[in-house]
């Protein structure tokens, strides 16, 4: 415990950094994933904008990038991060790379959840003369909102997990804190403190997600 107390300010700072990295990655990656997922859903056969070549390209793109272990992706995409954000290290670089990696993962979750919407509902909207983009924005997303919220909750937890390797490219957060001040300095209590904070964050996120999904699903 004595090891931990002087480090508490650093722990809070690390917690804040984790929330910052995860929050921004959720916004950028979440938006990118939503667009990509809508692309996958709407271009498949018998969908709103059925387009085999486009679907094929998107599908392969997601399949190529999604399974790369994040720590390797982080290293491999560093030149791209540097090109886009101006820096290959630190929190900014990791937010970029994390958003990119998350977008591919989120796209599958979005696609799966949109597929739960009954095709008949889409047909009903077409039958009243709604345009395809109107259907996508005013019907498809609201109809799948409950499962989508749960999907995004799942992703936030995954982002907390992935953000823990930020230290490899000079980023901060709880992962860096736990390794740097706990593991490397033989202070397991410090490591456990970081674990505890992560558990609390994940619990809060999950409770919030469940609550919002319940509201959307009305059950």
């Amino acid at each position: 415990m004595d090891d931990l107390i002087p480090l508490l300010p650093k722990l809070w700072e690390a917690s804040y950094e984790t929330l910052y990295i995860v929050g921004l990655s959720l916004i950028f990656g979440g938006l990118g994933g939503l667009i990509l997922g809508l692309g996958l859903y709407t271009t498949r056969s018998n969908s709103l904008f059925s387009n085999r070549p486009v679907f094929g390209v998107l599908n392969v793109l997601v399949n190529v990038f999604r399974p790369i272990p994040f720590i390797i992706f982080l290293a491999a995409a560093q030149p791209l991060a540097r090109f886009v954000t101006g820096t290959g290290i630190g929190n900014t670089a990791i937010i970029f790379t994390l958003s990119l990696a998350a977008a591919f993962g989120i796209s599958r979750i979005v696609e799966q959840n949109l597929l739960t919407v009954q095709p008949g509902v889409i047909e009903a909207a077409r039958s009243v003369g709604a345009s395809r983009s109107r259907i996508m924005l005013t019907l498809l997303i609201p109809e799948a909102l409950g499962p989508l919220i749960l999907g995004y909750t799942f992703i936030v937890v995954a982002l907390v997990d992935m953000s823990a390797v930020a230290g490899y490219v000079g980023g901060g957060g709880l992962g860096t804190f736990a390794i740097q001040y706990g593991y490397r300095q033989f202070h397991p209590v410090v490591t456990w403190a970081a674990v505890l904070v992560i558990i609390v964050i994940v619990q809060l996120v999950q409770f919030l997600g469940n609550y919002l999904a319940r509201k959307a699903l009305r059950r």
């Binding site: 009954q118 008949g120 509902v121 047909e123 009903a124 909207a125 077409r126 039958s127 009243v128 003369g129 709604a130 345009s131 019907l139 609201p142 109809e143 909102l145 959307a216």
Partner: peptide, 24 residues
């Protein structure tokens, strides 16, 4: 497409499975 949307405004349709919008 645009003309079809106008056409469909003048043709209502009902379905076996009702196909109501559950979010509304």
């Amino acid at each position: 497409e645009g003309e079809l949307r106008r056409l469909r405004l003048g043709i209502g349709m009902i379905f076996q499975q009702f196909n109501l919008f559950n979010s509304k």
